[in-house]
Amino acid sequence: MNLLQQLMEKPWLTEDNTVVELRDGRTFALSREKLGLRVFLVVVMVVFSLMMAAYIERKVFSDWHSVPLPWLLWLNTVILVFSSLAMHRAWISARRTEIDGVRVWLYAGGFFALVFLIGQLLAWWELVASGYYAAVDPANAFFFMLTALHGVHLIGGLVAWWRTMAKVTRGCGVVLVRISVELCTVYWHFLLLIWLALFALMLFT
C-alpha cells in the first residue's frame, strides 16, 4: 500500500451518484504487534536522540572534561553483540519451527544480556572507585545517565524475554512463540544499535 496514494483520494467525487465502489480499509501489511513495536521504537529513539543532543550541546563548551571510559566497556560491547546474535539465531530457529533451537538460543541471548548488565555495573563501580561521581562533573553525570537509561531499556527487554521463555518452557508450540521471539529480536538489535551510538558518542570526544 502506498500512503501518499491513499492521501490523494477524493472520497467526495463519486458522491455525485451516491454509490461508491467498495474497497477494503487498506491497512499496512504488518501485524498489530509489529507495528506497535515499531511505533514504540520510534519513541525510544526520540528519547535517546534528545539525550545525545543534550550531551553534544554541553560538550562543545571549553570546560568539558571527558570521562576516561573503562576498558571493560569494550568487552561489554562484544557481549552485547553476542546477545543480539543469539537472539537472531533463536528467531531463525523459530522460523524453521525448531523449538529446541529456539529454547537454546533464547537462553543464550538472555544470558549474554545479563552478563552485559553486570559488566556495566562493574564499569560503574570502577569509575566510582576512582572518584568519578555523578555529582562532580556534568560529563560523569551524562555517562551514568546514558548507560543507566540504556540498561533500564534492556531490563524491560528481559521482562519480555522472560515471558517468551515461560511460553517456551510451558510447551507452547513454536508457531505461538514465533511472534514473541521476533519482537524480542528486533528490540535486541535496536538496543544494540543504540548502545553502539552511545558508545561511539562517548568515545569520540
Binding site: R32, L35, V39, F40
Partner: peptide
C-alpha cells in the same frame, strides 16, 4: 500516555473496518 498512544496510532492504522480508507 505512551501506552495509550501506541493504541491510538495502531488502531487507526490497522483496525479500520473494511471500506474505511484513510480519506474516509
Amino acid at each position: 500516555f505512551t501506552m495509550g498512544g501506541l493504541n491510538y496510532v495502531v488502531t487507526v492504522l490497522q483496525a479500520r473496518t473494511r471500506g474505511m480508507t484513510l480519506m474516509r
